[in-house]
C-alpha cells in the first residue's frame, strides 16, 4: 500500500469511527462519508493539501484516494456482514417450497446469493442500493411485519395468498420478501452507466421492458433462484401507479427497501414524536405517488406500526 493510500486510510478510519455515525450500517456510513467529502470538499481541500496529508495533490487525486480507502474499509466490514445476514437472518428453504421439483439445497442457494451480493457490491449504484435490503433483513423488520400481516389477514395477506397465490407459511413468505429485496439492487447493476462519475444512483422507476431484461440477466447470475422471485425483484423497481398488477412481494420489497435505507436501529424516539416506523409509513402514504407505492399497502403497514408502537 502506498504511503498516500495509508494516509487516506488513516483519515477515513478516523471519520469512520466518528460517534455521529454510530449505529449506522457499513453501507450507510460509506454513503454518509462519500456525501460528506463531496459537500465539504472546498473546506477540506486546504487542510488535505497541507504537508501532513497530501501535499501538492489535486482534489481529484485526493478524492480518488479517499474513496478507495473508504471502499476498502467498507468492503472489510461488508463481507462478514453478507455472510452473517445470509447465515442467520434468512432461510432459503422457501426456494424448495416454491419449486418442490427442483428443490435446490438451501446452502447452495445461500452460496450463490453470497456471491451475487458481492457482485452487486462491486458497482457503486447497486452497492448503495443494498443499504436498505441489508438493514431490513439484518434487523428482522421484515419478519415482524410479515408475522402481523398473516395474523391480520387483511389487504396485504389477501394480496399475498389469494392474488399472488403464494402457498407458503409466514416465515417462508418473509424469507421470500427478503430475497426479493436483496436481489432488487440488480436493476441498477445491470443498467447502463449514465456517467455518474462514481456517484451512486437510487433505484427509480424503470420500464417493464427493462425490468424483464434485467430479470433475465439476474436469472443467469442466480440460476438456483426461482424465476418468480427474480422477476418480482426486478419488478420492485416499477411504479405501482403505472403497473397495478405488480406482485405483492415486489410492492412489499420496494416499500421495505425504501423504509430501511435510512433507518437507524435503536434510534431514541423523542417525547412528543411518533415512532420511527409509524412516522415513515405516514409520510410515505402522502408521497405514495412519488415513490410509486401501493397506498393500501402503506395504510395497512402504518396501521400495524401504530398498533404495535413500532
Amino acid at each position: 500500500m502506498s504511503t498516500e493510500l495509508e494516509r487516506a486510510s488513516a483519515f477515513v478510519g478516523r471519520l469512520w469511527e466518528n460517534p455521529t455515525l454510530s449505529g449506522l450500517s457499513p453501507l450507510q456510513r460509506e454513503e454518509q462519508l462519500i456525501q460528506f467529502l463531496e459537500i465539504n470538499n472546498s473546506t477540506l481541500l486546504p487542510t488535505l493539501t497541507s504537508p501532513a496529508f497530501f501535499p501538492n495533490q489535486s482534489w481529484h487525486k485526493i478524492r480518488t484516494l479517499l474513496l478507495q480507502a473508504l471502499s476498502n474499509r467498507t468492503n472489510t466490514a461488508l463481507s462478514p456482514l453478507f455472510d452473517a445476514v445470509l447465515q442467520r437472518k434468512i432461510n432459503f428453504h422457501f426456494v424448495a417450497n416454491l419449486e418442490p421439483k427442483r428443490a435446490p439445497h438451501p446452502d447452495r442457494v445461500r452460496k450463490s446469493m453470497a456471491q451475487f451480493l458481492r457482485t452487486l457490491a462491486s458497482r457503486p449504484d447497486s452497492r448503495s442500493e443494498l443499504t436498505g435490503p441489508l438493514m431490513g433483513v439484518g434487523t428482522g423488520l421484515i419478519d415482524k411485519y410479515i408475522g402481523r400481516i398473516f395474523e391480520r389477514q387483511r389487504y396485504i395477506g389477501f394480496e399475498l395468498r389469494k392474488v399472488q397465490r403464494l402457498k407458503l407459511e409466514a416465515p417462508d413468505v418473509a424469507d421470500l420478501v427478503k430475497a426479493t429485496m436483496l436481489i432488487r439492487p440488480a436493476i441498477l447493476y445491470f443498467s447502463p452507466d449514465e456517467g455518474g462519475g462514481g456517484h451512486a444512483r437510487n433505484v427509480e422507476h424503470v420500464s417493464p421492458a427493462f425490468a424483464a431484461k434485467a430479470a433475465s440477466s439476474v436469472a443467469q447470475a442466480l440460476p438456483l433462484m426461482p424465476a418468480d422471485v427474480v422477476s418480482a425483484a426486478t419488478h420492485s423497481a416499477l411504479s405501482f401507479q403505472d403497473n397495478p398488477h405488480l406482485e405483492c412481494s415486489s410492492r412489499l420489497a420496494a416499500v421495505f427497501a425504501h423504509r430501511c435505507r435510512h433507518m437507524r436501529p435503536g434510534m431514541r424516539v423523542d417525547r412528543g414524536a411518533e415512532s420511527s416506523d409509524k412516522s415513515w409509513f405516514s409520510v410515505a402514504r402522502k408521497n405514495y405517488k412519488f415513490y410509486g407505492f401501493d397506498l393500501d399497502m402503506l395504510v395497512e403497514l402504518h396501521s400495524i406500526a401504530t398498533e404495535n408502537g413500532w
Binding site: 455521529t20 460528506f36 473546506t43 451512486a200 444512483r201 437510487n202
Partner: peptide, 12 residues
C-alpha cells in the same frame, strides 16, 4: 439522491 447527512464539519 439520498442527501440525509448526519455528519458535519463540526463533528470531526
Amino acid at each position: 439522491r439520498g442527501g440525509q447527512l448526519d455528519i458535519s464539519l463540526d463533528d470531526i
